[in-house]
Design a protein around this nucleic acid. Structure first.
Lengths: 264, 264
DNA sequence: CGCGACGTTGACCTACCTCAATTGGCGTGG
DNA sequence: CCACGCCAATTGAGGTAGGTCAACGTCGCG
């Protein structure tokens, strides 16, 4: 299973209903490239991506832009965009995007109704920080081929988890230009790298789809190690997060995994 | 005032006493370069740097290493190193270092005794994430001169805040080699950049001290913008963080700033 | 059919890397 | 007080990964 569905897994069935009902009540759509929030804004809403991808980014005075991270369906667009006084980065739709925007007062109510919600969101933040670290090392220390391969691995795993064997396919909504902005490269150079990966039969990438015939091979090219995504640690992690919160009673009855949409 | 002292400012005087007593009871020293925690470890303690600097880092299979961030005196060494099942990065002493290590059970007790502690630590995490983002953009989009200048600005501001006018001096414990590992550059190249900065009279850097004659000038070279550090937002931010926690009553009586060590 | 967005290509360039040697400061032991 | 060794800073020469610029191709869409 991907990263997105896991937050749900940390809620009791009842909490999950409340949460999902709230999401459904607050849907909002954005066109490609339009901003959900801009650097310097006073943040007002908790946002969850429902479909499409969002990109966190930051602009330098010289016009260059760095994509800081991606928000895939089911994932939270930064808790801090909600917590902080002024947003320190922007967030925009990669392509057509639909999100749930939960205002401050409704969020407050949700937190009270769903004691497991705070820890779950906190978990999401912690994973977000881990991913951010991995991007830093990726850009800082890997060459272009490794960077791109790493990005593809991460995107795949965040959607479907690590494939047991062989490979698989998943959505991939970035243009090569956006990949370049994410990895600190040029569009031109990304293009050449992608071709190289194609020639090596490591990936097929077109029509917003990513196919990975042999995940192990690609992971090896990237020195990809999925542990930073902390897959499967969600329950333990949320338990610990709960320690930070008052929440001690009323733990979820470890909801059966049956309800969660299966991988691939 | 720097980033470090602020956590204290979020606690009531009583909480602060309890917290600082606990820190004082759990001091531990490390020699230059020795690891406080290694990637893959099962984390067991909450760590706060008391004196010296710590570096978060990650090693690639090919031997290259990226410094992901620095922990300055008074700052927390990653809440997630405490929360997560397995650490996804290592942390080591930059030079001689002394930290407080608070075990899980004592931490639990502290959280109960000090309701403002969780939000304060949560605040620290959020700032940490913002800093991580800034490093990503720094490495991804800036050239070597800007990167180094940005690092110097950040280090200064995290210790003393933005100087009102002119400049100032602060500790700077990194070697040029470590600066290189932090910024995704080479030791040799960092050296050349530092010389360039010296020639431009933008900084003086030696003997573990950093002198900035004209902060504005250096900031301009780096396109440095301190807002990502969210200085001065701590109280507001912690208020919001409190919303995530049960804590509603028992807010600190906005402790007077008098108790906090003054800047510079 | 024409336009816009994306991908692709080629020629050339440069910021930064690599390797390797040298210098200087400092602590330690004699 | 000096000699040695270590570590960090410095310098030089030469190499390359990736950037820049400028076309051109291609596909989908109004």
């Amino acid at each position: 299973m991907g990263l997105g569905e896991i937050v749900n897994g940390l809620l009791t069935p009842r909490e999950r209903m409340v949460w999902e009902a709230s999401l459904a009540r607050n849907v909002r759509d954005f066109g490609k490239g339009s901003d959900l929030a801009r650097e310097g804004d006073r943040p007002t809403a908790l946002r969850v991506v429902l479909s499409g991808w969002a990109q966190k980014y930051k602009q330098l005075p010289n016009g260059r832009r760095q994509i800081l991270g991606l928000v895939l369906p089911g994932e939270l667009c930064d808790l801090d965009l909600f917590t902080v006084g002024r947003a320190d980065h922007s967030i925009a739709a990669v392509r057509r995007l639909s999100v749930a925007e939960i205002g401050r007062s409704e969020a407050q109510r949700l937190f009270e109704q769903c004691p497991n919600l705070s820890p779950a969101l906190c978990w999401a933040e912690i994973i977000g920080a881990a991913v951010q670290r991995e991007w830093t090392i990726n850009i800082g220390q890997r060459n272009a081929l490794e960077r791109v391969a790493q990005l593809l691995c991460e995107i795949y795993v965040r959607q479907h988890g690590v494939p047991f064997e062989g490979g698989g396919a998943c959505d991939f909504l970035l243009t090569q230009g956006q990949m370049a902005e994410a990895m600190g490269l040029t569009q031109v150079h990304v293009n050449r790298i992608v071709q190289q990966l194609r020639m090596r039969c490591a990936v097929e990438l077109r029509n917003m789809r990513l196919e990975i015939p042999d995940f192990e091979q690609l992971a090896a090219l990237a020195s990809f190690n999925a542990t930073y995504l902390h897959l499967g640690e969600a329950p333990a992690l949320a338990d610990r997060a709960r320690m930070l919160f008052a929440v001690e009673a009323d733990r979820p009855e470890r909801p059966a995994d049956g309800g969660i949409s299966p991988a691939l």
